[in-house]
Design a protein around this nucleic acid. Sequence first.
DNA 1: CCTTGACTTGGAGCCCGCTCCAGGGAGTAT
DNA 2: ATACTCCCTGGAGCGGGCTCCAAGTCAAGG
Lengths: 136, 136
Amino acid sequence: MTISEVSKQYGLSTDTLRYYERIGLIPPVPRRGGGVRDYDKASLGWVELIKCMRSAGVSIEALIEYSRLFQQGDETLEARKALLVEQRRQLLERMADMQRSVDRLNEKIENYERGLAQKEQELRRHQAEREETGKR
Amino acid sequence: MTISEVSKQYGLSTDTLRYYERIGLIPPVPRRGGGVRDYDKASLGWVELIKCMRSAGVSIEALIEYSRLFQQGDETLEARKALLVEQRRQLLERMADMQRSVDRLNEKIENYERGLAQKEQELRRHQAEREETGKR
DNA sequence: CCTTGACTTGGAGCCCGCTCCAGGGAGTAT
DNA sequence: ATACTCCCTGGAGCGGGCTCCAAGTCAAGG
């Protein structure tokens, strides 16, 4: 699979894909003649994983470390697991922050709805009064 | 309340507090003689709100717009509500992305646990075999 | 053969969100 | 009076994460 096909498939720019490989986030992708990338199943798996993790905000630094450990083989199993556990912890923490914000937004939005409803009532009331006045 | 007290109370640096005010994220804070900031209740409310929203990842741009609308008075009630609704939508979307990542991490961590358990078993097995061999 | 187009690299540039700093003022303690 | 501490402003600098670009290589089509 060429880089542009991968780009279309996963919605990451070719620049980003090359960048990820350059910085060691994705292990070296196999090449055809002329040094042209030809993504195999393993590379696509990395692309998919990284896309998922990045879209959730996992840092590039952590993902590089994970990739590095992975390429070092079985001796790093514990380290990799620890890294994943830590990243999960951070994600859950940030989700909790976000939930707090969502709660506040819900409150505020409700207030605005109440406020707006009140404003509308006043508007209608004033209008009704004007009409009353007009009738007389 | 002085800026350094606010800083301690909310865990934002004085630089950040001044920065937020400079870019219009927090409306102008009242000053004492010599131009020294003296945060009142209203300003503290803004600090608290902004801290909450920023820690959840709401963009500075959106918060500036909200602050701007707020300072323009009641004509912007609908616009403000719309902005809040949109930001809530974005937060929930990002939380969904994060949940997907957490799910994948859970899977992977489980795999590592299974894998590690297996490795440990093998280790014990090999050890047992060696001991058996040693006995004879 | 020559053009076209997709690919390569290394490096520069950009946006966001702070963070740091120089240069200066004001209030207080000694 | 001097030093100390806290504050001010405007502007430069920085780290993360891309994004863009120049210059070059290669394969296929006319």
